[in-house]
Design a protein around this nucleic acid. Structure first.
Lengths: 142, 142
DNA sequence: TTATGTGCAAATACTTTGCCTTTAC
DNA sequence: GTAAAGGCAAAGTATTTGCACATAA
């Protein structure tokens, strides 16, 4: 998820390299967290306050369709975005702080494949989220 | 998820047993699929056409808070509801037909516990969805 | 030049809320 | 009788869209 990704997408789909798209890709590439639309919007406005929310939505959708951006929805119902070029992983959400921890586990991936196969399906996607509390803290949710 | 669940909740939280709540719990208990709000609404209206959508939403929320109903969001962005009293399981969504297959796997559950523990967390919840296509069919999503 | 992209405001889809009326207990 | 629950319509959210203007190629 860099400027060159954008150039590639524009070439492939004959889209235009606009100032707005450049700003948005820059903000996303510098975001190593999982920002919600509103957060991305704020970061964008710091660079160019004239970009509209509609353009942001259109661009986020564009990037999702180009598979350079992933959308998540963790429990709270709001969409969060993440650079899709990072290695495949899942998320553990800390119910105390809201912190999002990324993890990957080969055994888990293999097991999922196996389960799907057993059910007669070929896996084309999957989503896993764990919700936890740090050891020793109250185990009540929220 | 039966009438007696409702009675129990009402006793515990000093809520009232209304005709609307009885109809809603009846519909939900007879629904062994994963209906969206709109679908539940239609089923309810077949029994009592005067129940309002607002009441349905309020009641669904009530039941979720009482942990007798679970809300899911599978990829398509719409909320679907499921009786929470059935045995713990996950879902495999058939991308060709939209069909939802339920499954459970002890090894998977154990592995998730283990992963959380390794990260320093006690697991308080988790969500897993697999998206697949039947063997031999086109593997393109949607 | 001209089709594509943008900004704005309005529209949409889903869900919640305010307020007045009805009802369970 | 009284507080909780319901119905209705209005208000919220989050996101998309129509349209006139701006702009990249």
């Amino acid at each position: 998820m860099t400027l060159s990704h954008l150039k590639k997408i524009c070439r492939e789909k004959s889209l235009r390299m606009t100032a707005q798209r450049r700003v948005i890709i820059r903000v996303l590439s510098e975001s190593h967290d999982h920002p919600a639309v509103e957060e991305v919007y704020q970061r964008i406005k710091n660079i160019d306050p004239k970009i509209s929310l509609a353009t942001l939505y259109r661009t986020l959708r564009l990037f999702q369709e180009a598979h350079i951006l992933k959308r998540h929805e963790f429990g709270d119902g709001i969409s969060r975005y993440e650079n899709a070029s990072v290695k495949h992983h899942h998320h553990l959400i800390d119910k105390c702080t809201g912190e999002i921890i990324e993890f990957h586990d080969d055994q888990l991936e293999a097991l999922q494949q196996e389960i799907a196969k057993k059910l007669g399906y070929e896996l084309v996607g999957h989503r896993l989220e764990l919700y936890g509390v740090p050891f020793g803290k109250d185990k009540k949710k929220k």
